[in-house]
Amino acid sequence: MIEVPNVKEIATGQASGKIILMGEHAVVYGEPAIAMPFSATQVTAVIRRSQEDFLDSAYFTGPLTQVPQSLNNLKELIYMLRQDFAAPPLLCTITSTIPAERGMGSSAAVAVAVTRAFLAWQQVEETPAGLLHYVNQSEKIAHGNPSGIDAAATSGTEPILFERDKPFHAFPLKLDGCLIVADTGVKGKTRDTVRDVASLMTTNPQQAQRAIQQLGDLTRQAKEAISANQARYLGLLMNEAHTLLQSLSVSDPTLDQLVQVARRNNALGAKLTGGGRGGCMIALATDAHNAAIIANQLENAGAAATWIQRLGYTPAVPVSL
Rank of each mutant, 00 (worst) to 15 (best):
F168Q: 01
L131A: 02
S39Y: 06
I98F: 05
N136V: 02
E76Q: 15
I149M: 10
S155D: 05
A225T: 02
L321T: 03
N145T: 09
A26V: 03
V194M: 03
A316W: 06
V261E: 07
T93H: 12
L90G: 04
P68L: 05
A305H: 11
M281S: 08
M22F: 08
F54E: 00
V135G: 02
S320W: 06
S70G: 01
A304Y: 11
L119C: 03
T44H: 03
G302E: 11
T95E: 14
I212G: 03
V317F: 01
G312T: 07
L77M: 09
P205W: 09
P205G: 10
V181I: 15
E299K: 14
D183R: 11
E126F: 01
A305K: 13
T203A: 11
N239A: 13
L236W: 08
A170D: 02
E158T: 09
N300E: 09
L91K: 15
P88R: 10
T154Y: 03
I293M: 12
A231S: 15
T273M: 02
S96A: 08
P159F: 05
I160G: 06
L245C: 05
E126V: 12
G105N: 02
A231V: 12
G156P: 07
D150V: 06
L132I: 07
K271T: 09
R232Q: 15
P159H: 07
F168I: 01
V67I: 12
L173G: 01
D84H: 12
